[in-house]
Amino acid sequence: MEIRLAQQKDLPGFFEYLAQQLKENGSDNTALFHPLSRDQLELSDAMKSRFRDGMDKVVGENGWRQIWLAVEGEQILGHIDLRHHDEPNTQHRALLGMGVSRLCRGQGLGKQLIRYVVDWAATHSAFEHLDLWVLSTNAPACRLYEREGFTQCASISDMYRIDGRSVSYLMMTRSLHQPD
């Protein structure tokens, strides 16, 4: 397995992987990891566009996005991405998003992806903080982020009503200048 920076040519396979992840969102024993109800689980053109367009921008430019893929052969096992904050004057921070294939969850791939991107951001960027949003009901993700040095800095109670259920949104942050 290798972790590598995604290229535009990787997007068709990446979009298939994301579409599969969305189908699993909150199903069976899978945690709710995206704020969508069961009838909204399609990879929209707008979402595809944000990934596609962001990859064409330089880190630091409005709308930029970097995506790293964990791959084995041609199979995508997981991903992690960094992107700009929409708010002005936040160039010293980046937003993190990630996902791991159902087949690889609980095997340490999430930890590897986080450590990879933390190392990249600390050595190849001017970022001082990585931030993320996570649904409060996604206990496995919350535990992973905490183990990797993220701390909760905000909570929005009852942010979403998903399939009749109240779900809170947590913001977590990690300084890039803290010891590992």
Score class of each variant (00 low, 15 high):
L109W: 05
N138V: 08
R50W: 06
H124R: 15
L96V: 15
L135T: 05
K111N: 07
L96D: 01
P88A: 05
I80M: 09
L103H: 13
M172Q: 13
L144Y: 10
L113C: 04
N29S: 14
Q178E: 12
T90H: 05
M159A: 15
I162K: 08
Q8L: 13
L95Q: 13
N89K: 09
L5F: 06
W133H: 13
G60R: 03
C142G: 05
Q91V: 09
V59M: 15
S125N: 09
A122G: 12
W64E: 06
W68N: 00
H129P: 00
C104W: 12
S27M: 11
V118F: 10
T30K: 12
P35T: 00
R93F: 06
E2N: 02
E128A: 01
L170Q: 04
R83G: 14
Q7A: 12
R38F: 12
M172Y: 09
W64R: 03
T30V: 14
H177N: 12
L18M: 15
K111E: 11
D28Y: 13
V134N: 04
W133P: 00
T151A: 05
Q66V: 12
G149D: 06
G97K: 11
R65T: 03
N138P: 09
Q91A: 13
L32R: 13
R65K: 15
M159L: 04
S175R: 09
S155Y: 03
M172R: 13
K48L: 04
L32G: 06
F15D: 08
G97C: 08
Y160F: 15
L103D: 15
H129T: 14
G106M: 00
W68D: 05
L82S: 01
Y169H: 10
Q7E: 15
D86Q: 11
C153E: 14
V118A: 04
Q107C: 09
L32A: 08
M171A: 03
L69N: 04
L135I: 10
T30Y: 14
L109D: 07
N89G: 01
G78P: 05
T151S: 07
L18W: 11
Y145A: 02
D10C: 08
L109K: 06
S49C: 09
E87W: 08
A6P: 11
Q8S: 11
E128P: 01
